[in-house]
Nucleic acid binder design. Structure first.
Length: 205
DNA sequence: CGACCGATCGTCT
DNA sequence: GACGATCGGTCGA
């Protein structure tokens, strides 16, 4: 911890520039507290999903389905869905309600509650796979699709700022992962990573 | 290291 | 009936 934890408020999420938000989320701390079990990690990898014009987004073309309804929620809400039948991916909803912007949190550096994370994931000891990758971090923090539609302004799940800021040279911008079918939008530089951090998912741009 | 592959199932066509 | 905003393992160079 660098300083006092300060929970991000609605104003952080209620902004139109989803790329800026995705970048600013690097270094922030994602916290969950379920049944008194406190787990947290520092965000080191994010991806922006830029709404109805973004072929990689579940909201492309204004499509609304039962699964993706939460991506249209109010700023500071949570959009989670199951990927490949087994992984629960965690997204932060940004911009006004009904404007379906979202930031996928792809990797964390574990901070607190590591023993609880090991228990949830069934891993024997702390290593880079504990919270690297969107499926892995959700399991470690106890997040699942039940939390879709929930709020990051709550005390159960929230994102906090402890004052840490990465300098420009510490942040690398790349293409997003796993969105090849999004045609020209697959080329967009919407992924933000902390350079050299071992918890960033290991793939090239 | 890169390429590939199987697991696994909810969601949408 | 097909397809993923993944993961961890294997195989070959």
């Amino acid at each position: 911890m660098t300083g006092t934890l300060k929970k991000l408020g609605e104003a952080f999420y209620d902004r139109a520039d989803v790329l800026k938000i995705a970048r600013e989320l690097l270094g922030k701390i994602l916290v969950t507290r379920f049944d008194g079990v406190y787990t947290s990690g520092r965000i080191v990898e994010t991806e922006a999903y830029a709404g109805v014009g973004d072929r990689a987004s579940h909201a492309f073309g204004g499509k609304r389905t039962a699964r993706s309804e939460a991506i249209y929620g109010a700023p500071g809400e949570i959009y989670m869905y199951i990927c490949y039948g087994m992984h629960h991916l965690f997204n932060v909803v940004t911009n006004k309600k009904d404007i379906p912007h979202a930031v996928l949190i792809r990797s964390l550096e574990p901070l607190q509650g590591i023993s609880a994370m090991l228990q949830r994931t069934g891993k024997p000891e702390l290593d880079y796979t504990l919270t690297r990758g969107p499926g892995n971090l959700s399991r470690a923090l106890g997040l699942n699709k039940q939390h879709s539609g929930g709020s990051l302004l709550s005390d159960e799940i929230y994102i906090a700022d402890d004052g840490l800021k990465y300098k420009k040279g510490q942040i690398l911008v790349t293409k997003r992962i796993g969105v090849e079918s999004a045609r020209e939008d697959a080329e967009r530089l919407y992924r933000f990573i902390v350079v050299g951090n071992p918890y960033v998912s290991a793939r090239k741009s």
